[in-house]
Structures are given as structure tokens and as C-alpha cells.
Nucleic acid binder design. Structure first.
Lengths: 311, 311
DNA sequence: GCTCCACGTGCTCATATGAGCGGAATGATG
DNA sequence: CATCATTCCGCTCATATGAGCACGTGGAGC
């Protein structure tokens, strides 16, 4: 279109050549106002693209769309680096920033585990908050308070906020329902579960439903278990509970053997912050977002775009 | 750096959120002026990138650098499309635009041939100029005034400017020097050569020194001839004359058998417009530009960047 | 052929913004 | 410790810019 060509010319003179709208008008024989209007149109039509290039930048446009489309309280989207990856770190950093800035500061914060959350914990600065009690939401691996396992991450978050930590001394999934019930009946465990369920904020991730799952890695499930779950429609797990694309539990029997807060709690929570990074998790991320499991989403640009595509 | 983080935040609020500098100042507890300065810095440091996305857009920044660095009269750089190619068309379009806008309109325009110039000819609108005489600069293939060969392109350019055309009725390269001299002695040919040498503007391209060369395709040279030339340092040809990286004739004997205007004419000309597109021609393009064969360069972004790299 | 609506255009005016300046702070140097 | 240079900051003021409005024009519908 002829008009478009003029827009391009005007935009070049304005942005590349630092001419004033007046000058451009004189040059192209257009009124000053026409030039201004062409410029706004050029921005609207996306001919002029203004981009903020920085690892810590955010994609506010995408955030707005996500909040709008999926009824979230907030969304944080960071740019995905070009070819390579540092995506996880960027997202973790952004999540840490969000937590640090979050007001009011929650008295208790429920956390799940996984590589992503570990990165978030590491990205939190010392003194990111003061006096926050951190509670584990689901059973994990290492019971050691120091080490790098599921517990370590909760400990790190708590330490850096000069707060307490309540660990859930239980495996993620048990082999028999009876054992699970016995564990939950245990006073310490029960107390932590109550505390967790009542947390003022939740911070969690999700896992994809494939062999790379942490459950397989830690021996709670076998690769064929996961395959079977996928066959039955599971797209991934949240707090150790495998759900399908609609957010429903895929295998109630398995679920009954899983120790941790129930998903309903996340849906009911004021603030449940979901952190996800990487292409493998698009499906489970979509489910978490569309089935209302989170109110705040922290993710990378690629995932954000995937979540905005027509279902 | 801490400062940088604030710059990013400010830029986001300003460009993505359409806040005024005042508002941002209030929000981040900075003076209005500080905000303004951060914004300019962000642009300088390239944190804020303003890009004009359009096939017909030009890269004025690169053009400036090229003019500066290589002492050109003008440069036209169009964006290279992402993965695919329409690069040739874009460059041709840009060259056509340049010709159309060029003032003063030359009375006679010397043209070479090749796929690129053919595209330029096609991109020229009817009536791009009036009364321009088009002269062929070097020997070509088809002697037919209508068809799509070397001559056709000159005819097209002339027709669309309601002008005349002077074709050079000669092969590009002859087998024996004597034949070449005989041809040049021919009255018609000699007249055209004089006219060509005295043209007020030149429009030409260059070919890379490889088997894809038009000389091989048309049987003036064999693939092994070209190989040999490359071995002796040739990077490509201009008006059928093979030159090395410094712009010197590689094989004087071959050159003596080549019919057409001499390269010195291009160097001496007021306006000699060099059009080049595509990655294969970076080397010959560099030579043309650095050895002063052209005063105006029309090319794509990728080539432009290559020409700006430290030798 | 007439009317009316919608749109594009050029204007006035309030506001946002960048240039330039003097003073304060900071840091290097003797 | 004194001095000087350099940088940074907040301000004044001129200027560039966008919102809103009135007008003209052209096209659709009656």
C-alpha cells in the first residue's frame, strides 16, 4: 500500500534520522499532524517495533494478554534468549524478583520442589523478606536439612528470609495406600500438612509427563508407569499429582498414595505462584493456567506465546 | 549493574506501559530528569532498540556507517528477510527507488547485466524518468532487442523512461585478441563504447568468481577457467573483468579479450551505482567498495554488515 | 439529486520532553 | 589535608508533541 510506504519513510526519518515531525512534514510535504498520525499508526501496525533487549527485561505486552485471557492476578514473562538457553535462570530470577517485591509479605509460604524452584531459591537475595515461614507442600527426597534435595530448597528460601522452615518428612508417593494413610496420621506430618494447606501463598512448579520426570529419577515411579499415565491422558504433575489437560486427576488410586497438599488448595488460594520454563512444559503449563491452579504465572516468552495460541 | 536494571524498568514503563516520565519518576522515586537521562542512555546502550519492520524499510544506520567508512556518495541498505529469501527483489526494488529519485536525472545511463540488474529493470515503474538514453557497458549474450537476455534489460530500462537504448552488439569475451580488436574497430561498436564511456551515470553489478558465474553459463569461460582465475586471486568480475581483492585485473591477457568499458571509467565517474545482493558476493562487493569502483552502493543488510567488519 | 454520515484534515492548546546551566558531590592528585 | 577536575543532579526555559475540536469532502442511501 502507498500509505504504508510513506509510514515507513516517516518512521525512518523520525527514529533513525532524529528529525522532528515538523521537518519531516516540510520534507515530504505533509502537515505536521499528518506526520504525527502516520507515526502512531506505524506503531500500532507494528511497522515500528520498540523492543527492550535485556536478560532482565519483561514482556509486558504478553503479560497483559495472559492476565486478560486466563484471568490471572499477575503474570511475569521474560524474553527467551535467542538460540541458546539460560531460560531457566532468567525465569528463576524473575520469580525471585516477584517474590521479593510481593506485598503483603506472606507469613507462611508453601513451596513444592524441582529444578526450577531450586533455581528460584538460589536467585533470591539474602534478606529478600523477613520472618517468612516456609512450608513444604509435598513429599520429597532428602530429609537432610542442609543438602541440595527437596528440603534444601525450602531451607534456602527460609534462611534468606531469616524465617523458619517446616519440612514434610515423607516420600512423595508410597507403594501402598495404607502406608500413605499411616504417614499422614503421624503427628509431625499431619501438622505440616495443615500448616501447608493454610499457607498464605504458594510457590510451585509442574513436571511434564515423560521419562525425564523427577519421580522417575528418584524411583517413586518407573518409566513405564509414566508411559501408562501419559496414555491415560496425563500431561504432567503438580505437587506430585498427575493431571490431564482439563486439570483432573488421572489415576485416583495413584493419587491416594501421593503425600501432600491437595490441588484444590491451590485453586482456592489468594496467591498461588506458578513458575515454569522451557518448551517441554508447555502442555502442563497450559493445563495449570487454564484450570485455575495458579493466580500468578512466571514464565519465558516462548511458553507465554504458546499459552496465547488458540487452544 | 544496578543502574542498568533501573534503565530496563524505566524503559518498560515508558515504552510498554505508556507512562509519562513524570509518573515513572514518582513511581521509582527518581527526578523527572533522571528518568529522561536514563531513557536516552538506554537507547544509546542499545537496551532500547527501535526497529522498522518492513520489506521496503532501509537501514539508515548502516548506510551512514558505509558512507563514512568507505567514502561513498550514498548507500542504500535494505533489511535481509529472516530465514528465507526475497533479498534480491528487495535490493532491486531499492535500487529502482534510488534511480527514480535520483537528481539530476542523467542524460545517459550506462548499464551492465546480470540477474540482479534484470530484477532492477523489472522493479522500475513506467515513467521512472523521461528521455534517458541507456547504453550497454559490456558485451552480452542475446542481440535480440526484445528478449530477456543482456539486451532486454537495457531495453526495459530505456522503454520505461521513454528513452533510447544503445546495445553493444558483441560477445562478452572473445577467444582471440585480434577478434576483439576487430570488433572494437567496427564503427557501431566503437560508437557505443564511446557513448558508454561518457555516460553520466553507471549502474552495474558484479559476479562472484565461481562456477555459477554468468560467463560460464553462457559459454564465454569454462568452469576450469574460472577455477584458475580464483587460484590466481580473483574474487569476482565487474563488467566482465576479473579482479583480485585489491581491484586489479588478474589476467591481462583475458582482459584484453574482454569487450566493454574499462574499470577506470567507473572509478572516475560522478555516479556509479553498484547493486549487489546475497551472501555469495560479499568478497567481490568488498573489493568494489574498497577499491573505489562505485560511489553509490545498494545492497542488503547482511552484505552491509560484512562490509563493515574489520577487514 | 439531495441528505446525512463518516472520515480525513488542519487547527488550538495543554502537556511532555530535551538542551543548557549552575551548583553539589565525588574522587583523584599533589 | 587542600585543591582541582569531573561527574552528577535538579532546575529554567524553549520546543516538540498529542488530545480534542471544527470543518470540509466524498460516498452511500433514499
Amino acid at each position: 500500500m502507498e500509505e504504508e510506504l510513506i509510514m515507513v519513510r516517516v518512521a525512518e526519518l523520525y527514529y533513525d534520522e532524529d528529525k522532528t515531525q515538523d521537518e519531516i512534514g516540510a520534507l515530504l510535504k505533509l502537515s505536521r499532524w499528518k506526520v504525527g498520525r502516520l507515526l502512531t499508526q506505524a506503531r500500532e501496525r507494528g511497522i515500528v517495533r520498540i523492543e527492550i533487549v535485556h536478560p532482565r527485561a519483561r514482556r509486558l505486552g504478553l503479560e497483559r494478554q495472559l492476565v486478560e485471557r486466563h484471568g490471572l492476578t499477575a503474570a511475569v514473562v521474560v524474553p527467551s534468549p535467542d538460540g541458546d538457553d539460560g531460560t531457566l535462570e532468567r525465569v528463576a530470577q524473575a520469580a525471585a524478583d516477584y517474590l521479593t517485591a510481593m506485598r503483603p509479605v506472606p507469613r507462611t509460604l508453601g513451596v513444592s520442589w524441582g529444578r526450577t524452584l531450586r533455581a528460584v531459591a538460589e536467585a533470591l537475595p539474602d534478606g529478600w523478606a523477613t520472618g517468612v515461614t516456609v512450608v513444604q507442600l509435598n513429599g520429597g527426597v532428602s530429609l537432610n536439612r542442609r543438602s541440595g534435595g527437596a528440603a534444601g530448597l525450602a531451607v534456602t528460601i527460609a534462611q534468606r528470609a531469616s524465617g523458619h522452615v517446616s519440612l514434610l518428612p515423607s516420600p512423595a508417593i508410597l507403594e501402598r495406600v495404607e502406608t500413605k494413610q499411616a504417614i499422614e496420621a503421624d503427628r509431625t506430618v499431619a501438622a505440616v500438612l495443615v500448616e501447608a494447606a493454610e499457607a498464605q501463598a504458594f510457590l510451585f512448579t509442574a513436571g511434564p509427563c515423560d521419562a525425564t520426570s523427577a519421580h522417575v529419577e528418584n524411583g517413586y515411579l518407573t518409566a513405564s508407569d509414566v508411559e501408562e499415565l501419559a496414555r491415560r491422558g496425563a500431561v504432567g504433575d503438580v505437587l506430585g499429582r498427575y493431571i490431564d489437560a482439563d486439570g483432573n486427576i488421572v489415576d485416583p488410586q495413584l493419587d491416594a498414595r501421593t503425600v501432600g497438599v491437595e490441588l484444590g488448595r491451590l485453586r482456592a488460594a489468594q496467591r498461588s505462584i506458578f513458575v515454569t520454563a522451557g518448551d517441554a512444559k508447555h502442555d502442563i503449563a497450559r493445563t495449570v493456567v487454564t484450570s485455575g491452579l495458579c493466580s500468578v504465572l512466571v514464565t519465558d516468552e516462548t511458553t507465554a506465546r504458546a499459552l496465547l495460541e488458540e487452544r
